[in-house]
């Protein structure tokens, strides 16, 4: 019994040290997303180029959706932009939708950014960041991969790479195909 008590203190330190080891191994920059595995919040946002026109998430029902929050003042957004252009060029818009949500930026700055770097996909503004807050956005760039069933599969909170986009979009297409034709 005495031997057991002698070891009690070192043994009690084991879970504390294990927790410390686990904590130090975590990337503190990566933040949790409450949305993964849940239905993506619906939205209807004004078109960047034509505010009287709006874009809704439900417009893309049955498609894989890549929802990208970006801003013209965001340096990593410049770095990831060619990946988004490649995404748009690679996948059929009827299969995979890409939507860009301008985050905390002036519409004219956003338009200038697109004029300079190119890109043809629906771009919307988010006044008051209401939709961004509903999605739990921390900053930009942030990208949400939403399945054809409307469920958020992944939230990525750094600039996307082509490998990441291809892997996730392909797997969501496979899941959609396995579930049956869109809309059925």
């Amino acid at each position: 019994m005495r031997g057991l008590w002698r070891w009690a203190l070192p043994l009690a330190a084991v879970p504390v040290l294990a927790l410390l080891y686990w904590g130090l191994g975590q990337d503190q920059r990566r933040l949790p997303s409450a949305l993964e595995g849940r239905e993506a919040p619906a939205f209807r946002l004004a078109n960047l180029y034509n505010p009287s026109d709006s874009v809704s998430l439900s417009d893309f029902e049955g498609k894989v959706v890549v929802l990208n929050y970006w801003a013209s003042w965001c340096i990593p957004c410049i770095a990831e932009h060619p990946v988004l252009v490649r995404l748009r060029e690679t996948y059929d818009p009827e299969e995979v939708a890409l939507i860009g949500v301008l985050f905390q930026d002036r519409p004219e700055n956003g338009m200038r950014f697109i004029e300079e770097l190119g890109g043809e996909w629906p771009l919307v503004t988010d006044p008051g960041s209401l939709t961004a807050i509903e999605y739990g956005v921390y900053g930009v760039p942030e990208t949400y991969f939403i399945g054809a069933d409307g469920v958020v599969a992944l939230r990525h909170d750094l600039a996307v790479t082509w490998e990441l986009v291809e892997r996730n979009v392909d797997s969501l297409i496979v899941v959609r195909d396995a579930a049956g034709p869109a809309g059925s």
Partner: peptide, 9 residues
């Protein structure tokens, strides 16, 4: 990302 936003702030 959040660093960028933080820088903006």
């Amino acid at each position: 990302m959040s660093r960028v936003a933080c820088a903006a702030a």
